[in-house]
Amino acid sequence: MNKPLTAKDFATDQEVRWCPGCGDYAILKCVQKTLADVEADPDKTVFVSGIGCSSRFPYYMNAYGFHTIHGRAPAFATGLKLANPELDVWLVTGDGDGLSIGGNHLLHVLRRNVDMAVLLFNNEIYGLTKGQYSPTSRPGTRSPSTPSGSIDSPVSPGAFALGANARFIARGIDTDAKNLSPVLKAAREFKGAAFVEIFQNCIVYNKDRFEDFVAKKTAADTQIHCEHGKPLLFAKGEKGLKLNTATLQLEIVDVGDNAAAVEDIMVHDETNRVMAQMLLTLPMGSFPMPLGVIYRAPATSFDDAFTHHHPTQRKRTGKVADALRKGSVWKKG
């Protein structure tokens, strides 16, 4: 019997060149460990990336890897998946690569529902180019290109994905492998485009940007882990999210003897698009950060449809010589 795979089996001989303390290390480790856990076949696994810190990821994964051009990785990955639907395709991108220069392609890979896991490392900054503000940076972000603070409204990756008609939307935190790993497994198993936003700490240019909800000490109060069929509780079950039917908005309520009953708390239904919309757009700060699989509503994947709608299911049944002799053909002489 083969000995079980370990994270090391998915590491390469390449020196990892992220800054010391970068959240990318933790994500890399988590992905390697997750693939070992599910006994993934490195020969059938492909990591495709664009440009940015996160996009160096494929060099460090002992699998096939394709480090492409800025923002276009979803298009490369789509062509790859269509060419060989048997492959387990992972797309690694960042907030700049995926939502700025590559926003168009991310939109289309999600709405087409091409079968792949899309990992978007969100650090709200351009790290590789030394710290300019990104499309997910919060207003007022001071950076080399915005010395008096950024003025434009950021895009929410999850809300973008939902708007693009993504069928799987999840969130995780770089250093929280315990909760990130199951999300990665679910993304891998999902037949379609599985979008995972990973909050990633850029220790050099945007240090502790997510500390408000990432800090372990206060995590119980600042995070809400969504589980299908379970009430949306946090703060060790002492608080929950309740739908205010008058305003059609979620609100935080205390749960307990003299407060709301557990039955009043909204039960997470991962197939409910309206609920996903509410969870993905909860105001940061005043609400806990929803994490885990927030939305999962399977539909036919593009690569499946691509094969099934093909006149011969992509098999070659005809001959060029015969095809040439169809139509307006005559004999010489």
Partner: peptide, 27 residues
């Protein structure tokens, strides 16, 4: 299609070229 051809109408020119290279990477 019966000659083994697959066609993909991409979202833009860039994506069309990238998808074609992705297909080539895939064999």
């Amino acid at each position: 299609g019966d000659l083994g051809v697959s066609t993909f109408q991409a979202e833009d020119e860039i994506a069309a070229c990238c998808a074609a290279i992705g297909a080539s990477f895939g064999g």
